[in-house]
Design a protein around this nucleic acid. Structure first.
Length: 430
RNA sequence: UCCGGAGUAGCUCAGUGGUAGAGCGAGUGGCUGUUAACCACCAGGUCGGGAGUUCAAAUCUCUCCUCCGGAGCCA
């Protein structure tokens, strides 16, 4: 059976087709009514008149409600007066199911109300645009790595130990044993890199931090590539190529959606490699020059990140952070032990950190020393240390937070709109 | 955890001691080109919960709850 979708309307001009969807909105007149039909791919204006449609179809105007499911058959025409440029002259409108009074009207609603109705809110134009851009970003991520000799290695969500030791994790009972929901797949990714050379994992990540800001979710998606024989510079080369590719793909495939969101396209078009790279030490100078009192050794706060990223029109990579504020597995700078071979990528326009990564420590003695400094034991990291014991190798990787990238590319004020069903400190439902 | 803000009709809000309000949405009627349509009519309230002050509390006081924003922490 032939299926017809609204997004392909230009191919149907002059044809009589059947569209299946929901009544997004309508205007009712005495002898004519307009039905905006939503089918998940787009919105089609259907014109139902007393003369062109059968009587039962026309009289539906007296009963149909917003979001009722309907099947409409009619001829597609190019029509400049229609919002989408095309419209259907309906011959038949079949009511599949009459909807109860729909909670979401076209007027303003508060975010909390909309989030309580997130399962319905997803039907709206704006949310539709965001989710389709998210989809394109996910596809770009997979295509990018799949086209560059990376192998997908899925890493476990239940983990026995924290990856970085600092963050608060969700714990759960695992048949009498304590297990944590993953904070990162990286350690497993390193095992993958030793087996396959270049790998990536891409899945949900959990943080139990009681963060309450527009940049935080308790459950979010992270993609983490890990590359054998990559040093910090190669890591940064890959990261900038990766992010420029994602932005380019969205610009190529999602112009209407960006327009729906009123996104300033020129800001995205500026995102071209190479990205500026500055050391942590230079970033501190930038802060000092901007009147911020900042001591070398501290971590950047949200406003510090904004000041740094505002110096540039594209993402900036800050590298060589103080080792004291970075994780134990990051390689130390051979030229200065106080610095770790870490990199953070800060998105423009104040969207903050979208990538965190590093060259990994490949010296087993240095690694053991740091594990002990953190109060852990060699046994805790037995299998991880094996990776250094059996053919240690220089390697690097990074993690990119999907939702922050979606928020940035879509120009959203809050990260909670970037994922279909956000999980935040105060939201577990719907 | 800390700091700040909010809670009144289905929704968005106004209402600072004296009879509970508006717009939108719902309902009814009208309209052959609507784009958040328009016109007319109409229904709709535990003012977040509890306690207190007062002749009188949505309004003042105390307390609890819920939500929002920010800090910290992070992608």
């Amino acid at each position: 059976m032939k299926e017809y979708f609204i997004q392909n309307a230009q191919d149907y001009v002059g044809q009589t087709v059947t569209l299946k969807g929901w009544a997004y909105s309508f205007r009712k007149g005495g002898k004519i009514w307009f039905l905006q039909l939503r089918d998940g791919t787009g919105i089609m204006q259907c014109v139902v008149t007393k003369f062109d449609a059968d009587e039962a179809s026309f009289e539906l105007k007296n009963v149909i409600t917003q979001e009722s499911s309907v099947i409409v058959t009619g001829e597609i025409k190019a029509e400049p007066r229609s919002p989408g440029g095309y419209e259907m002259l309906a011959a038949k409108v079949e009511l599949v199911s009459l909807a109860d009074e729909y909670p979401i009207s076209k007027k303003d609603h508060g975010t909390d109300f909309l989030m309580d109705n997130r399962h319905l809110w997803l039907r709206s134009k704006r949310q539709h645009a965001i989710m389709r851009i998210r989809h394109t970003i996910v596809k770009a991520i997979r295509d990018f790595f799949d086209d560059r000799e990376f192998t997908l290695i899925d890493t476990p969500i239940f983990q026995q130990a924290a990856t970085e030791g600092t963050a608060t994790l969700f714990s759960t009972d695992y048949f009498g044993e304590k297990a944590y929901l993953t904070q990162s797949g990286q350690l497993y990714g390193e095992a993958g890199a030793a087996a396959f050379g270049k790998i990536y994992c891409f899945g949900p990540t959990f943080r139990a931090e009681k963060s309450r800001t527009r940049r935080h979710l308790t459950e979010f998606w992270m993609v983490e590539p890990e590359m054998a024989y990559y040093d910090l510079d190669m890591n940064m080369d890959l990261a900038e190529e990766f992010v420029s590719y994602i932005v380019a793909q969205v610009l190529e495939h999602r112009q209407p959606e960006l327009q729906t969101l009123d996104r300033d396209i020129s800001k995205l078009e500026a995102v071209q490699a190479p990205f500026p790279r500055i050391s942590y030490t230079d970033a501190v100078k930038v802060l000092t020059e901007n009147g911020v009192e900042f001591k070398w050794g501290a971590d950047f706060g949200a406003t510090d990140e904004t000041i740094i990223s505002n110096q540039f029109d594209r993402p900036v990579m800050v590298h060589r952070y103080p080792s004291a504020i970075k994780a134990f597995y990051m390689k130390r700078d051979p030229e200065d032990d106080k610095q770790a071979m870490a990199l953070d990528m800060l998105a423009p326009e104040g969207y903050g950190e979208i990538i965190g990564g590093s060259q990994r420590e490949d010296d087993i003695e240095a690694l053991i020393r740091r594990i002990k400094e953190d109060g852990a034991t060699e046994e805790d990291y037995a299998w991880y240390l094996d990776l250094r014991r059996y053919g240690s190798f220089p390697h690097s990787g990074f993690g990119l937070g999907l939702e922050r990238v979606v928020a940035w590319i879509c120009g959203l004020k809050h990260i909670r709109e970037t994922i279909p069903f956000p999980r935040t400190i105060n939201r577990l439902n719907p």
